[in-house]
Amino acid sequence: MARIAAAILALCLATAVHARPVSYEGGWTLIEETDRQSTALWVHYTPNPKLSLGWRSEWDRKQDFVLNGPQATFLVKRWFGENYQANVYGFAGGGLLSGLEDNPADGSGALFGGIFADWETRRLFASYRARGLEGGKVDSSFMQAARLGFAPYEGDTGDLHTWLMVEADHRPDNSDPVGVTPLLRFFKGPMLFEAGWSLTDDEPLVNFTYRF
């Protein structure tokens, strides 16, 4: 019941993912991310095509804290081809922690940073991301995740694009450090929605992105 409530809450909070964490110049993006570890809401603005600046609120359900603060994402390098695009991004942020369930982290600061890389054609997708977090009364944490995807058909502009994906994540601090999550990605116009289920923790993955 609690898991269903968490999934519904995540859907209600809804908005987007690591598909293009930097938008077009002048664009706003709203993102919700829920995985086996946390639920996050993230809004960012792109002042130029190599940088986005935003605000991230993240509820770490395993470590019982909420982190609120700014996040900057930089496009380090983009490769263009007629049939593919590849990107490497760096990101960094920080903020104040609020402890939940007797977590004494209340009011202490935290910093995080990491990288995200992807390669995509209209049929194939691969990505990798890694993030480290250092917070006063919260133990430092590290995670990394890799994803592979396949589109069963090529949709044109405005069609519903469908992807079958699997994500493997590694969180050394967890009791189950390696997680596997199959998921479906749906893309249509300015919206992206992902739904999956962690086979490791029996938890939902729900991601949503809207690009204004």
């Binding site: 490769w79 263009f80 081809g81 695009q85 995509e120 502009t157 069609d159 694009h161 893309f187 992206l192």
Partner: peptide
Amino acid sequence: LGVVCDFC
């Protein structure tokens, strides 16, 4: 070049 999805 690089146009592969609806976000593009």
